[in-house]
Amino acid sequence: MPQYTLNIAHLYGDLMNTYGDYGNIIALRYYAEQIDVTVKTTVISLDNTFKSADFDFVLFGGGQDYEQTIVAKDLKSKAAELQHYIENDGTLLAICGGFQLLGSHMIMADGQRVDGIGALDLYTINMHDSQVKVAKDARLTGNIVIKNNQTGEVYHGFENHQGRTFIGDQELALGTVISGNGNNGMDNHEGIIHRNVFGSYFHGPILTRNGNLAKRILATSLSQKYPDINWEDNLKQLPTESF
């Protein structure tokens, strides 16, 4: 009987879950179960209250533009608690639309401006913006490979986004683009690392194809909750899926 539990909040899991983002939870569960950790997932959607103390990991996936504008409105009611979670070193993975909504604002494909929660120093413009010098008016779609800026690990995935994201000078990108486009196709940045928050445009999904990152996120989440156990060592024993 597993004695450890990882409580996952799937933020707007019913509305922001395109391109297989849920697979990130499947991957975490896959590794967790092998080290006797039970994973419990709760969808926190419109009208639900997000309580940071209830969760050890948060997944915030991408969605369609329409759903994203509805989510952005609702997110205002959860912004303070989410900010609190992040600044207390809570572990969070934000993909695509979720990544964009952690920033200050975004311009949707149709020009509509949507406010994010401003937890991270980043903003997003659309593919039609005059600043866009690479693939203007086109989506950035295709296979992508990056090198993690902290660990040097190489990650594989698939990106599919029209928005172009720019991170602030003080923020660290998740990785440097080896092939593909990344945040905006211009500055070689892909995603963001901010405390224990990982943002990315990777579908694929990122944790299913990049077991090193899955293990790292799992160890980070569990160490917050059970600090006396060496989770990294426990996870090191397991074979890593990486392709």
Partner: peptide, 9 residues
């Protein structure tokens, strides 16, 4: 479809 991520859904 060049994106395989749908298999996770």
């Amino acid at each position: 479809g060049i994106d395989t991520s749908w298999i996770w859904d």
